[in-house]
Design a binder for these strands. Structure first.
Length: 432
DNA sequence: TCTGGGGTCCTAGGACCC
DNA sequence: TCTGGGGTCCTAGGACCC
């Protein structure tokens, strides 16, 4: 038995904890570069703002409808997430943190009324962190996800489902008739694992509701679609196919990519951006104890603009796997210089560290610079320590830029709220 | 003017091997 | 005329997730 607990409109709710004046108002949080809406309050959803809606298209609602738009404050959301997750873990014996605002909890061995227990947990999370949540319970992870969707929808749109399913929905506790009734009023696209593509195909075949999907024969689904969808169908039928993953494996690739605040045409500026992203990737790499064997660098123009388009990537191997910032930056720059073409308005670049291996696995080789290597490792440790203690960017590699060049590539963030919980100078002051 | 970032898994097809 | 069988590895692309 599984529960899926997730934060309602998570980023917006994090902002509201410190800005109660935003309660009851339409609020959205924008992606990096203030590009598009990535979180919406219920009031913003009611205005018809879609997930991913470009900001420039909905901006007029600031005037027309009192919409409040905030730049993403990921430092805040990450910290609030940690607080929420540590409480949610108490619901059962094992927890899998699935995303910044969701976690699965294994409820096996938990006695008593699971819905009541979940309601108490919700209350505790709300009181201790200020964050509203919903809980879905089911026999499999896919059913728990579905239950969570129902709980959220029942809460947000009264009348869409029986009122008692609002906020907490336990599909496993329902009788067959009620269960099928709920499934028959839920669209097939709401199922975890059914995206726009498969959703369309299913609907074209007349499979419109979750109940329809649940009644398909798994073998047929495998033949007509894939083993992935077959698993989904089996999970809906109550057979668990997706296990808990409570010790997430090391990443197999690490990406650092950004769209630019403004178009960039100059190689020098791109070099700063690529150096910055490769450095950040190197930090992530060291944090998980890995080495990279190859570095992929890409540049591209904006596919949304009518300008001349250019998009290329290149993979450059390292002489030996490493997590050394200087080596990774140098390699990424070799790639950049190979694919750069003048005359284009670049919109985005990125560095991906691939072919990752565990740092403890070392290829034996004749080492002609043992002291150098050892010192590099210490240097990286010192650098990470300083940046952790005094903030990201305290110590950087020179090619990332010292501010003497235009920084069109720098991210646009015009509406960021303070880092209330993670930056000492930005902690709110309570007045007596 | 202005459209996010970071991942995973699966499959098909080609290259290559014996 | 008639041209095997079984396997691995890699890559690109598709689809999905939040």
């Amino acid at each position: 038995m599984y529960a899926l607990v997730d934060g309602n409109n998570f980023y917006v709710s994090c902002e509201r904890v410190f800005r109660p004046d935003l309660n009851g108002r339409p609020v959205i949080v924008l992606s990096n570069n203030d590009g598009c809406a990535i979180a919406r309050s219920n009031e913003a959803k009611a205005l018809g703002i879609k997930m991913g809606a470009p900001w420039f298209e909905i901006r007029h609602m600031e005037e027309d409808a009192g919409l409040v738009a905030l730049s993403a404050n990921f430092g805040l959301y990450g910290d609030m997430s940690d607080r929420m997750m540590s409480l949610v873990g108490g619901l059962g014996h094992r927890q899998e943190v699935y995303s910044i605002d969701e976690s699965f909890v294994d409820l096996s061995g938990i006695r008593g009324n699971l819905a009541d227990r979940s309601r108490r947990l919700r209350q505790r999370v709300l009181e201790w962190t200020g964050l509203p949540t919903c809980v879905g319970i089911g026999q499999t992870k896919t059913l728990a996800k579905l239950a969570n969707y129902i709980a959220k929808t029942a809460e947000r749109k009264p009348g869409s489902y029986p009122a008692e399913l609002s906020s907490v929905c336990d599909l496993a506790a329902m009788n067959r008739e009620a269960f099928e009734q709920v499934l028959s009023t839920t669209g097939v696209r709401e199922v975890w694992g059914v995206g726009p593509r498969i959703g369309q195909q299913l609907e074209d075949e007349g499979i419109k509701t979750v109940l329809d999907l649940t009644r398909l024969d798994p073998a047929t689904v495998r033949r007509r679609w894939s083993v992935v969808l077959e698993r989904t169908v089996r999970e809906l039928q109550g057979t668990s196919c997706i296990d808990m993953d409570d010790a997430p494996a090391a990443k197999k690739e690490i990406a650092c990519t950004r769209s630019f605040g403004r178009a960039v045409m100059d190689l020098g500026e791109l070099e700063e951006a690529v150096s910055t992203f490769a450095s950040r990737g190197a930090e992530k790499l060291r944090a998980q104890g890995s080495h990279a064997g190859q570095v992929l660098t890409f540049v591209r123009t904006s596919p949304f603009r009518p300008d001349k388009q250019y998009s290329r990537s290149i993979i450059v191997p390292l002489r030996r796997p490493t997590a050394d910032t200087a080596a990774l930056v140098e390699t990424a720059l070799i790639g950049l210089r190979a694919i750069f073409r003048p005359g284009y308005k670049f919109a985005k670049t990125g560095v991906m560290l691939i072919d990752l291996s565990d740092a403890s696995v070392l290829q034996g080789e004749l080492d002609l610079e043992p002291e150098l290597c050892e010192n590099r490792g210490r240097l990286m440790t010192a650098m990470d320590g300083l940046n952790r203690r005094y903030g990201r960017g305290t110590v950087i590699i020179g090619s990332a830029g010292t501010g003497d060049m235009p920084r069109n590539w720098a991210m646009k963030q015009e509406r960021r709220t303070p880092r209330y919980t993670t930056k000492i100078s930005e902690i709110p002051v309570a007045k007596a």
